[in-house]
Amino acid sequence: MRTSTRIASVLTGLTLALGGAALTAPAAHADTSACINQVERELKGGEAPVAVRAACSLALTGAHEACVTGLTETSGVTNGTAVTACRLAVK
Results as ranks from 00 to 15, higher is better:
Gly20Ala: 09
Pro49Arg: 11
Glu42Asp: 12
Gln38Leu: 08
Arg41Phe: 05
Gly20Leu: 03
Leu43Met: 04
Lys44Tyr: 14
Ile36Asp: 01
Glu40Pro: 05
Glu42Gly: 10
Val52Phe: 00
Glu42Pro: 06
Val52Pro: 00
Ala27Ser: 15
Asp31Asn: 09
Ala28Asn: 13
Glu47Ala: 05
Gly45Cys: 10
Arg41Cys: 02
Arg53Glu: 07
Leu43His: 06
Glu40Arg: 04
His29Val: 14
Val52Ala: 00
Ala34Asn: 06
Ala22Asn: 13
Ala25Pro: 14
Gln38His: 08
His29Phe: 09
Thr32Gln: 02
Ala30Thr: 07
Ala21Leu: 15
Ala34Cys: 03
Lys44Asn: 15
Glu42Ile: 05
His29Cys: 03
Asn37Glu: 05
Asp31Gln: 04
Leu23Phe: 14
Glu47Cys: 04
Gly46Asp: 08
Ala34Leu: 09
Leu43Ser: 02
Asn37Val: 04
Cys35Gln: 08
Cys35Ser: 08
Ile36Tyr: 03
Val39Arg: 11
His29Asn: 12
Ala21Ile: 15
Ala34Val: 02
Glu47Trp: 03
Gly46Lys: 10
Arg53Trp: 13
Ala25Phe: 08
Asp31Val: 06
Asp31Cys: 13
Glu40His: 08
Val50Trp: 12
Ala21His: 12
Asn37Asp: 06
Asn37Met: 02
Ile36Glu: 00
Thr32Lys: 02
Ala48Lys: 01
Ala27Arg: 08
Gln38Ile: 00
Ala27Lys: 12
Leu23Ile: 07
Glu47Gln: 05
Ser33Arg: 07
Gly45Lys: 07
Ala25Leu: 13
Ala25Thr: 07
Gly46Cys: 04
Ala51Gln: 12
Ala34Asp: 05
Ala21Val: 15
Asn37Ile: 01
Ala51Pro: 07
Gly45Ile: 07
Ile36Gly: 00
Gly46Gln: 09
Thr24Met: 14
Ala48Val: 03
Glu40Gly: 02
Thr24Ser: 12
Lys44Gly: 13
Ala51Asp: 15
Gly45Ala: 07
Pro49Val: 01
Ala22Asp: 09
Leu23Thr: 13
